[in-house]
Design a protein around this nucleic acid. Sequence first.
DNA 1: TCTGGGGTCCTAGGACCC
DNA 2: TCTGGGGTCCTAGGACCC
Length: 409
Amino acid sequence: MTATPPRRIAHLDMDAFYASVEWLRYPQLKGLPMVIGGSRHNPDQLIARLNAEYPERVWTTQDFARIPVDFFPRLKDYVGRGVITTATYPARQFGVGSAMGLMKAARLCPQAIRLPVDFEQYRRFSRQFKQVIQEIAPVIEDRGVDEVYIDFTAVPGGQREGGRALAWLIQKSIFNATGLTCSIGVAPNKLLAKMASEFNKPNGISIVHESDLERLIWPLPCRKINGIGPKADAKLQGHGIRTIGELAAQERAWLVQHFGKSYGAWLHDAAHGRDDRPVVTESEPVSMSRETTFERDLHAVHDRAELGTIFTNLAEAVAADLQRKGYAGKTIGIKLRFDDFRIVTRDQTVAEYTSDPRRIRQIAGQCLKRVILDRRLRLLGVRVGSLLPTQDLARQTDPDNPELPLFGG
DNA sequence: TCTGGGGTCCTAGGACCC
DNA sequence: TCTGGGGTCCTAGGACCC
């Protein structure tokens, strides 16, 4: 019997991911104030406009790097709704930041270049860098398009220098394959690894041990803990608690009393760097949804036809997502956002699992009837939950299927 | 001139059953 | 007639994350 090695968990975060992917195509934009957000990207439109405005040559999709900087659209020319998903450092100098409305950002930094989001492209590079990691360290947890947790514990060499050697190998391999840089934190658990990955941005590595808790973690503001959001942070500050160290100094019972049994106890553990969540490599989706914010607020009666079309399109989009990914669901719901930003949801569970657009549209329509539409609408969404993979569904309902368990379980 | 889209998880009350 | 719990499912809202 050999002793179990101590857990070493890495959190890897791609550096300014969306902007960096754009720079691979448009290196001429490096160093400029730039924001990404707003309307969806269509590179063909860009090429068409180039050919119209610069007819002295024929432009193709090979020419992205040659597009003159002057040609790119500016923030001040953008009209419409939307928020910033990424702002480069030169843009941040002007007070522009992610999640900020584009209209407000345009006032702060009108000359910034604005690129629309190109999720398809970001997803392509996402798959690529995750593939590289997987070949080196197979136990990976997906945390969205630009982040993963990696369990170093059982990887050969994963313990060397606290994980630094393996982190460096992964960084180098990702850069060689994609031209993109990332930052990696390695720690005894996910909670600390997530914080560590922020310590040496960009293109950095940070190693954190249990003994570093007081020195490196406790001076940080509570908000740095993944799971403490704006509400919890404000409430903590109301009690004079600003740093993780101050949080750690609170009695567990006191936290439970003020934040609830579950969240209070978690706060106490988190402040002491305790976290035993495993790195989860596979998970089934719980729900799928599509939602859209209208270009202008719509009235339930006055804009009835337009709303009906959008509603049907959303139902069809969710249905297509379900079918493409092989799922059906039996809880169909809607989400509305009114012009005053109030959000209302309604859902209904039906007897039969479905991924049929007409059925989803029908149930969603019934949900809509239960809402008092006394204000203009800003957003409409359709959601399908209580999902089951289609293959399990076939097994459940097909009596001839030999895999069907006769007496449950 | 504010404020996207796609998710997860938790809480809390009521229905319903044993 | 009154008085229980526990368990599960459904629904609505909200916090939080990327």
